[in-house]
Design a protein around this nucleic acid. Structure first.
Lengths: 191, 191
DNA sequence: TTTTCTACCTACTAACAGGTAGGTATATTT
DNA sequence: AAATATACCTACCTGTTAGTAGGTAGAAAA
């Protein structure tokens, strides 16, 4: 991994661990064994680094998208949820949740970049849900976009809320999302 | 409102607008027309102010709880969701979402205070859902705690995600949560 | 061989952060 | 009237922040 890539990777980890306003150039520099000023060689300012992090997340999201494009909707959704589960295991949150929380402290470019990425994810999820519905793999009684919003907020919010409860709560949420979409639900009575 | 109360109120607004690490004592001081040092008179440090904000949120939550205690579960839930809708209109997010995002930068006391508050909310929601189920007002096929987690993450995450889309998306989410609990669902086909 | 480029570096700055020490005007209590 | 408590204040300190100016060793290109 190049220095540039390492900077982006570390910035991403720090943003999703501590938040955009809590990480500093020095945090990255000390880990990489370079000096603060060297980060400015690659990124003029924090804004540009932030945008690079969002773009990299978008790139990785598109890699996943392509990788699962031929699979069944349920499996696509499962792969998507799995990335959140991995994030949960790192005790981190998703980039959208992290930066949306700090939105009013970011400049407009960063905000626009983030909004673009969020819309990308929502739209992909809509197509997966539509596919699933057509194939009879998914059942849901609300408009597709609404269902997509509900699922994403469950995952995004789940990462944050379950930092305060237990990791297991997150996995329960993720499993439930998928279970609830199945047309035939084997109901167990948990009393 | 006393100076002390004003400080807490402003800190709360700032935390839920910009995030814990983005607000400064000076932000509060300038608005109140006092000096930085005067805030330290009421709160020894940022930590204590943060905890005071959480405790105030908890107090207000309990006021709401009492105010709706005698009402039907659906109306209790609606009142709860309404507080999030009001927050959405201010372009703010909820305290749990804001501070959970910054959790790894807070000291343990603050984190514990927050976790306590989050559990309070989850447990209240569980009892409301249980009540609703017993009365036949609510139907849901997952364990009560799971349903509570799903609803809270929808609201918490909805406030954050819809900062990037449109306010209407949040109201859709909030409405859908309540609609989906109703035992008889009048299904419309939105194509 | 000389020039240019890459990938850093040292050294610095201005702004801002939370926090502290100690002072003071006013109101309240004794 | 004297003592005390309240609710601030001025002045200062130390640490950290993003960011800048200009230098340099080594590799690549001309």
């Amino acid at each position: 991994m190049s220095t540039r890539e390492s900077i982006i990777h570390l910035a991403d980890q720090l943003i999703r661990d501590q938040g955009y306003n809590a990480f500093s150039f020095y945090d990255i520099a000390k880990t990489l064994g370079i000096k603060n000023a060297s980060i400015h060689y690659y990124f003029p300012g924090k804004t540009q680094l932030g945008i690079a992090v969002i773009k990299e997340q978008s790139r990785r999201f598109n890699v996943l998208k392509q990788a699962v494009a031929d699979k069944r909707p349920a499996e696509q959704l499962r792969a998507f949820a799995h990335t959140y589960a991995a994030t949960r295991q790192e005790e981190r949150i998703c980039i959208v949740g992290s930066l949306a929380s700090d939105l009013h402290t970011l400049d407009t470019e960063t905000g626009q970049s983030l909004a673009l990425f969020a819309e990308e994810v929502i739209e992909w999820l809509e197509t997966v849900l539509e596919q699933g519905k057509k194939l009879g793999d998914f059942t849901f009684a609300v408009p597709t976009r609404t269902k997509a919003l509900l699922i994403i907020t469950n995952l995004l919010g789940g990462l944050q809320l379950t930092r305060l409860t237990q990791p297991q709560d997150f996995y329960t949420i993720a499993e439930t999302i998928i279970q609830e979409l199945s047309p035939v639900q084997i109901k167990e009575n948990n009393t």
